[in-house]
Design a protein around this nucleic acid. Structure first.
Length: 192
DNA sequence: CGGCCGATCCACT
DNA sequence: GTGGATCGGCCGA
């Protein structure tokens, strides 16, 4: 098990990174409490050329600032006024690429996840949505623009091998406004 | 400064 | 299968 280094995130192919994040382990250490989830679904957002991205056309605001910084940081924002969504920033400074983590499977801290989400059991459905995994792992907007090589939130490689045939590639969802870019095959899921 | 609406979730039918 | 919750960011005036 080893923490992914900054070099992993600084690479230029955000779609490849989204695919490679499947089977990696997302770790949050909030107030000393650790939870770990196996990443089972991701989506790539390809910056200024991608109509689905918050950074489309280079739109740079206080909210999207983190995406424009150097890869290897978090981009977290509030969606629908309720849900905190967690993204991994990739590529070099100035290129606002990001990977949305859409789902994880519980690995460590089952009880914590149950407490945080008011569920009796931490089964495979406890964090099977982008808003649900942030709740289960207590990731919030206050963790926006943090380093992924720090001690709050990071991603580990525990040598879990993902087979090519266990990866489902599909269209991203919830982005109907993105016109033709809504059909890009930028969504990666682990078939369980 | 007002108004629109979203990278969603869940309860309810 | 569907609609309501819920609020900050963003844009246009």
């Amino acid at each position: 098990m080893k923490k992914l280094s900054e070099d992993f995130y600084l690479r230029t192919d955000v779609v490849l990174i989204a695919k490679e994040l499947l089977g990696k382990y997302l770790v949050s250490c909030i107030d000393g409490k650790i939870t770990v989830g196996l990443i089972s679904e991701t989506e790539a957002y390809e910056g200024i050329t991608d109509k689905a991205s918050h950074a489309h056309n280079g739109r740079r605001t206080a909210r999207t600032e983190a995406m424009f910084l150097k890869g290897g940081r978090t981009y977290i924002y509030l969606c629908y006024g309720i849900h905190h969504l967690f993204n991994v920033v990739t590529n070099v400074e100035g290129i606002p690429h990001a990977v949305l983590i859409r789902a994880v499977l519980p690995v460590e801290g089952h009880q914590l996840m149950c407490n945080r989400t008011n569920k009796p059991k931490a089964n495979h459905k406890i964090a099977d949505g982008p808003g649900k995994l942030t709740k289960a792992m207590e990731i919030q907007v206050v963790h926006n623009n943090l380093s992924l090589v720090g001690n709050d939130i990071w991603i580990e490689d525990r040598s879990y091998k993902v087979k090519e045939k266990d990866i489902l590639i599909s269209k991203r969802i919830g982005i109907d406004y993105a016109e033709e870019d809504a059909d890009l095959p930028y969504r990666f899921s682990l078939i369980t």
